[in-house]
Nucleic acid binder design. Structure first.
Length: 99
DNA sequence: CTTCTGACA
DNA sequence: TGTCAGGA
């Protein structure tokens, strides 16, 4: 469709300010800052220092919310997120190697 | 918008 | 410990 659709649909590109992002995932802005301080998230920053949350950041935030509901603390969630990302890379690596 | 501090369950 | 409110 759109010729420039590649960069416009990049899930890694920061789109939302912290207020909009918190609103979209149903969290408080203070919590989003805390999650970042605890190493659960790394939203991009503008030159002026304001956070920019991407669509994949929102997915990550919703995952954090699920894990919190399940009773994990922030330290545990950081571990889980790390393990999940490692599983993903190992799975894709195994997929490549298999072909 | 940012970081920081304190109260609450 | 995580959440939330208020202030600089």
């Amino acid at each position: 469709m759109t010729p420039a659709a590649t960069s416009e649909n990049d899930p890694e590109r920061g789109l939302y300010g912290i207020t909009v992002a918190a609103d979209l995932v149903g969290m408080g802005v203070q919590n989003l800052r805390l999650y970042e301080a605890r190493g659960l998230l790394r939203p991009s920053r503008t030159a002026g220092g304001t956070r920019r949350y991407s669509d994949s950041d929102l997915v990550r935030l919703r995952r954090i919310g699920q894990l919190l509901d399940e009773g994990l603390n922030l330290a545990g969630i950081e571990k889980v997120l790390g393990l999940e990302s490692r599983v993903r890379s190992l799975e894709s690596e195994a997929r490549r190697r298999r072909r």
